[in-house]
Amino acid sequence: MLSSLWEQTINLTLFVILLRMMPPILLGALGGLMTDRAGVINIGIEGLMLVSAFTSVAAGSATGSWIIGMAAGVLAAMIVSYAMAFFSLKMNVDIIVTGFAVNIFGAGITVLMMSILYDSHGSYVPENPVSIPNVVIPFLDQIPFIGKLLSGHNLMVWVSILAVVFCYYLLYHTPYGTHLRATGEEPGAARSLGIPVVRIQYSALVWSGFFAGLAGSYLSMGMTSMFVRDMTAGTGFLALAVVIFGNRNPFGILAGSAVFALATAMTMIIETTPGNVIPSQFIKMVPYIVTIVALVVYAIRKHRKTLFT
């Protein structure tokens, strides 16, 4: 079994699966990060992803264009997150309650729309599926090792990695980012300096809708080309764990997402290995064990910091 795992690490199968699993976690976590740094953590990422996944596949298959599908999905998630911002910032509803509501709303509205539009409560497989294309780099894909390493990945893999750089730049190298971080650290002080706190928090929530929207459209048009009720299956919550694990930093989040994607990719490979003796229930635990280990590592690191300062 170990030899098979090793073999698939060498021939990059593990890496390819890892890259396919990573974008939804990474993009979801970036959405969580923007709100977390602005002090209005959005726990509704899961619901936003579902809304976007459904809208993407519906709009994409209706128009036959993945770009329109993706745009529609992202827009839908942004509208819902704007509504979240309205309720929590204008109407003073607790942000956790709002996020919770969005999760329930996302699970419900997608099934409702699916039953109205396609007369199905369980799943929708479009007749003419569209999907976000894979990026094949010419010439490079002919080279044995490097070809598999760099070429043939879904466009969203690259988008998600670029999004990390974008978030980093936005948060640490623009006045807006500084204001956003200040708002999250101490809204009172930020307000006293004339920073428009509420407006910044509004924008942070809409950013989370944008990233969760990209993640959702990848789920229904990249990884698969269908919508299944509750197809996010906890990815949005995993993303929130990654925000904390990644030390609330874009590059930390990239590393965190890679760790989780690696754990999932490994369970895939172990499970499909012939003669595998480990019970499937045990393998299913691996991502959660990684979560616990991650949080322990985080806690130790934080504890050390307080010890030495």
Partner: peptide, 28 residues
């Protein structure tokens, strides 16, 4: 004939069902 089996863990996670199947087709 050898049978390779894997379990999704629930009945909704279509992306995971697809990944597991791809792993079976491509690697095994």
């Amino acid at each position: 004939v050898k049978v390779i089996s894997s379990f999704v863990g629930d009945f909704n996670n279509a992306p995971k069902g697809k990944e597991l199947s791809l792993a079976q087709y491509n690697s095994q």
